[in-house]
């Protein structure tokens, strides 16, 4: 709730220079994470807020191989894109399964990638022990109650905060690339390498440096023959983050899985690319047995607390169900 200087950016380079040069400056786009954490929870306390919503980073273009999405495109805009509907139906499902229409009209794609965890221990400054806020202060969530919306993959004793994005689940499965503008120009970062596991420094969440600006994402369009789906499991029927979600894309030829892409949501400290499961799936027969083996492979070593003890099993079953719906069972 600290006072801050509001600056409206009208030029990308200038915005990057401004934030890069001021450790107390932060970008503001859709605001659905930022405004909440700044004004309501009091977790972020920038002295200068650089509003980037009027930068020319909004819009979607596509060619045969890639869908390029400007970072300020909103979730609703992306969901309404005909290429997304046709070539990336599971991304559309994931988009529309997230939040509410109001929030999707505000939230940008760049902001979705960079959304902060919903962990209520992180978001309450009255809780002193949070390694993500204050390195080496401990993790209240691990011993606390209500750690239901928390991670079981990539998690550990230092942090179990969840990356709650729906959209990122299909994106990470599709090998999406993030375009980033820094003071030294633009670079491309695969989404699979964009996020950092909490490890010893849960406060470091991505490979971005202060002042780096996400300008766009590039989604490689999968082959037309691939079948994809997004399955989200949650307590409430709508307007809730996932307990477990699965984004899956499969190509099955003559009963054999020739290509498998699998992302998991609701379970990871980062949007989770399920490579172990993909390895089991690729080249295997499209059977429930294969799907079970894939789920088992991905959830071999989950980190659970009492509140999340049910999640590994739920995740396995959700993976199996999602795959079964796509690939059928050729047993």
């Amino acid at each position: 709730m600290r006072a801050f200087e509001y600056v409206r950016a009208d030029d990308i380079g200038a915005a990057v220079a401004l934030v890069s040069g001021d450790p107390a400056a932060q970008y503001l786009a859709g605001g659905t994470t930022q405004v909440d954490l700044m004004l309501k929870d009091g977790i972020l306390e920038p002295e200068r807020v650089v509003d980037i919503t009027r930068l020319p980073l909004r819009g979607i273009t596509a060619d045969d191989r890639t869908l390029r999405v400007g970072a300020l495109t909103t979730m609703e805009e992306l969901a309404a894109d005909p290429t997304v509907a046709e070539r990336l139906p599971f991304a559309r499902t994931a988009l529309l399964a997230g939040a509410s229409t109001q929030l999707r009209n505000m939230a940008t794609i760049g902001g979705n990638l960079l959304q902060r965890t919903r962990c209520r221990y992180f978001r309450d400054p009255g809780v002193p022990d949070c390694n993500k806020r204050t390195p080496s202060s401990g993790c209240a969530a691990i011993t606390g109650a209500g750690a239901r919306m928390h991670a079981i993959l990539g998690a550990g004793e230092t942090c179990i905060a969840l990356h709650a994005s729906d959209l990122c689940v299909p994106l990470v499965a599709l090998d999406t690339v993030v375009r980033v503008r820094g003071t030294d120009g633009e670079r491309r970062i695969p989404l699979t390498e964009f996020y950092l596991l909490p490890g010893d420094r849960p406060d470091l969440e991505t490979v971005l440096r202060h002042g780096d600006l996400v300008t766009a994402i590039e989604i490689p369009l999968p082959p037309a023959a691939i079948r994809s789906g997004y399955l989200k499991v949650r307590d409430r029927a709508s307007y809730e983050f996932a307990l477990v979600s699965v984004a899956a894309a499969l190509t099955v030829e003559d009963g054999t899985i020739t290509e498998a892409r699998l992302g998991l949501g609701g379970v990871g400290t980062i949007p989770w690319r399920a490579r172990a499961a993909e390895q089991v799936l690729t080249g295997a027969p499209a059977t429930v047995e294969t799907y079970r083996a894939a789920a088992e492979a991905e959830l071999r070593a989950p980190f659970t607390v009492p509140g999340t003890a049910f999640k590994p099993e739920l995740a396995r079953r959700t993976i199996v169900r999602a795959l079964e719906e796509l690939g059928g069972d050729r047993t």
């Binding site: 209520r120 606390g144 307590d235 709508s238 307007y239 809730e240």
Partner: peptide, 30 residues
Amino acid sequence: AILEETVTDPRTGRIANANLGDYLVAVNAD
């Protein structure tokens, strides 16, 4: 029946889900 539970942290007595995002009341789709 299926959604609402105010969760109190057993160590600190802090309510762990004191907001409408984490304390689930029925929405239209329910």
